[in-house]
Nucleic acid binder design. Structure first.
Length: 687
DNA sequence: ATGGGTAGCGCG
DNA sequence: AAAGCGCGCTACCCAT
């Protein structure tokens, strides 16, 4: 879908070269149904408009009813229930501690964002060519305002039309108003100025609307500093809600105006950048998928969280006691400072590694080395393992489980400079997956389940980055391996040690696998030593043999670095740019870093582009079934599917992921391959 | 008290 | 000489 032509601003005295938001976009406050209907008729003449909502209430700090056993010594009949001061929910006395503990922890989180699922819209602003309007509908002011239900009903033809909807961070606003349409999300085309700005330059310090306006619109600072600070604040809606009606209206309209002007200014640039225009359309398509994912959420087994938390608390306490028994005095095991003092000053263990700031390291790699000399480091490693599980994954997730037993994380499109998605609040892209020595590595993944009557389908790309490497480098051995469907890691091992594939040991294959992964992105031999524990000399030999096997890789790396040095940027197959100004630095450290980023971006970035295309296609397929995307972990999709439709879904998902074309040809010169499996929880489906 | 920086560690 | 990249979160520590 191409970017639609822009409406020409038709305000009187409009000067394209010098947009002046405050003068030309006169704001009107709408307070009658007649005015509102006129407004809709007017805006229906435009093929694009900006809008913005101000909302209040219902921060996403929520407590959940924890099933499971009460602490011993209490009974359910002991009716001394209390209200948690943070969440207002009723709890049995014995659980009060738990409740307030979690709530205060969550409430202490800096500026918890408003939740589009539960907030209340009290004002909606619109901006179009030469005009802007604000519709109050619930500001706490005596004067009469329109009713929400009525307003949204009258606005329906505007939002549910082919007109482009423009805003900064559009998905929040679309989801905020979707609940007034029974959850229906207004359809594309979309124009998110944040994502547009990020696509045009991924290196800005800030993508706040105020800062972008200043940069691109020469926003007149005479619009008083009070307003500047107000909209520099993320929670303008909360702020404006508390000020007088007049002021509130003045604040409310700012973002819609700014977004309109910013879009009008920046989207022009796409006209001369066809590849970026296509990428922008891709991002808007992804945005729609992400909004649906957020509405749906990821189902978890709430009932299991409480007992698991207790179990881990017990384990971590035991490990801590064991550690402190060895130490023989007070010591905070979570303090790297105290640990370094104990390990290196008191025990006089050898220092083998320093941190970035020159302090003596106590990380897992170092502790593993020290474990041969003293019993403490090994015990500490076990404690850390459990502590991480407990604090980050169990404790961190509990306050974020919604009432319907689902976690709704945000997937962000304008964070990772390579074009990957990032995930936060909570981050569901870093849940432990690997096998572990001391703890059940997959216990958290097992909590992500299919609801009754459903199955989880896990679909991930097989070695997508190495396939892209083969495509980009044109290395004939890599191309051969993938077109012929040969086990690349096995082949690598066979070539490194010059032995027939059937004689390759599992250990050799593992080293070869690490090599493929490392050397592709300018990794050195030292890293292989760290990962597999072979000698420096052996690693050096592996390094040489690897590059001799795949000469196209180093040659391509040189080419990319030269291109970056000449142009100041590199790009993916789809033209997603990454600017790397430090590529010309005299400082070898900075330059070296930029060079590795330059080589990495076309690989990781292209994989991200392909994954985004696949996401949209997979979502399109699922739309026709009782199935939903619930998670994306870079090259992996987790899908919830009605049990009866799984068999039907599997081949559709495979085609959506593997048959990706560009310019009428398969996107890569080697096949894309997806592994797809089914289970009742995330861990089971992955296996 | 609260904010920024650092260390450490989880994932692809 | 020395080197994968990309993220987010928790805890601690020291500053204001």
């Amino acid at each position: 879908m191409p970017t639609s032509p822009l409406p020409c601003p038709n305000g009187e005295g409009w000067d394209a070269a010098q947009p002046s938001p405050t003068k030309l976009l006169v704001t009107r406050t709408v307070n009658s149904v007649e005015d509102l209907k006129c407004l809709v008729a007017d805006y229906e003449q435009f093929d694009a408009f900006a809008f913005d909502v101000e909302t209040t209430g219902n921060r996403k700090v929520r407590m959940l009813r924890l099933p499971g056993p009460l602490p011993k010594g209490t009974t359910r009949t002991a009716r001394t229930s209390v209200l948690c001061p943070s969440c207002g929910r009723e709890f049995a006395d014995a659980r009060r501690k738990f409740c307030s503990e979690i709530c205060s922890k969550a409430a202490a989180k800096d500026k918890p964002p408003l939740d589009a699922r539960t907030n209340t819209v009290w004002s909606l602003s619109l901006a179009g060519p030469g005009r802007s309007d604000v519709i109050p509908m619930g500001h706490p002011d005596k004067r009469k305002q329109l009713h929400r239900a009525e307003v949204f009903e009258i606005l329906r033809p505007l939002f549910f039309s082919g007109r482009r909807k423009i805003n900064q961070n559009l998905s929040f606003d679309l989801l905020s108003i979707a609940k007034y349409y029974d959850g229906a999300i207004p359809p594309p085309p979309y124009g998110d100025t944040l994502i547009l700005a990020f696509l045009l330059n991924e290196n800005l310090d800030s993508y706040k609307l105020g800062h972008l306006s200043k940069k691109y619109l020469a926003y007149p600072t005479r619009l008083d500093s009070q307003v500047m600070t107000a909209y520099g604040d993320e929670k303008l809606g909360e702020f404006a809600y508390r000020v007088s009606f007049q002021e509130a209206m003045r604040y409310s309209i700012i973002d819609a105006k700014m977004a309109w002007l910013l879009w009008w200014k920046l989207s022009h640039r796409l006209e001369s950048l066809p590849k970026l225009a296509d990428l922008f359309d891709l991002e808007m398509g992804v945005m729609r998928v992400l909004m649906e994912m957020r509405q749906h959420g990821a189902y978890v087994d709430v009932a299991a969280f409480g007992p698991l938390r207790e179990e881990l608390e017990h384990q971590v306490a035991t490990k801590e006691a064991e550690c402190l028994h060895i130490v023989g005095r007070e010591l905070n095991l979570n303090s790297t400072k105290q640990l370094a003092e104990y390990l290196y000053d008191e025990l006089k263990l050898p220092v083998t590694k320093l941190t970035a700031t020159g302090l003596r390291s106590t990380d897992a790699e170092t502790l593993k080395r020290l474990a041969r000399r003293h019993p403490f480091p090994a015990k500490l490693l076990e404690q850390r393992d459990i502590q991480k599980m407990l604090s980050t994954y169990i404790g961190g997730y509990i306050p974020r489980i919604d009432d319907d037993s689902r976690i709704r994380a945000s997937f962000n499109q304008a964070v990772a400079k390579t074009g990957r998605l990032s995930c936060s609040e909570p981050n569901l892209q870093n849940i432990p997956a690997r096998y572990r020595q001391n703890t059940e590595g997959t216990m958290v993944r097992r909590l992500f389940q299919a609801p009754p009557g459903y199955k989880l389908i896990v679909a991930d790309y097989s070695q997508i980055e190495l396939r892209i490497l083969a495509h980009q480098t044109r290395d004939k051995t890599l191309l051969y391996a993938y077109t012929e469907g040969i086990d690349l890691h096995l082949m690598t091992a066979s070539r490194i040690w010059k032995i027939p594939p059937e004689l390759v040991t599992p250990e050799q294959r593992s080293i070869a696998k690490n090599s493929n992964f490392n050397f592709a992105f300018e990794g050195g031999p030292q890293r292989v030593v760290q990962m597999s524990g072979i000698s420096d000399a052996d690693a050096e030999a592996v390094y040489e043999a690897w590059h001799k096997s795949y000469p196209g890789v180093k040659a391509w790396g040189k080419k990319v670095k030269r291109f970056c040095w000449q142009h100041g940027y590199v790009e993916t197959l789809y033209g997603r740019k990454r600017r790397l100004p430090e590529i010309t630095s005299d400082d070898w450290k900075l330059r070296g870093y930029a060079e590795r980023q330059a080589v990495n971006h076309p690989i990781q970035g292209t994989a991200a582009d392909v994954a985004k295309i696949a996401m949209i296609r997979v979502n399109e397929v699922l739309r026709q079934l009782d199935a939903h995307l619930v998670l994306q972990v870079h090259d992996e999709f987790v899908i919830e599917c009605a049990e009866s439709q799984v068999e039907q879904a599997l081949p559709l998902i495979r085609v959506a992921m593997e048959q990706i074309h560009k310019d009428g040809k398969p996107v890569l010169d080697v096949p894309l391959e997806a592994n797809i499996s089914v289970g009742s929880n995330w861990s089971e489906a992955k296996a």
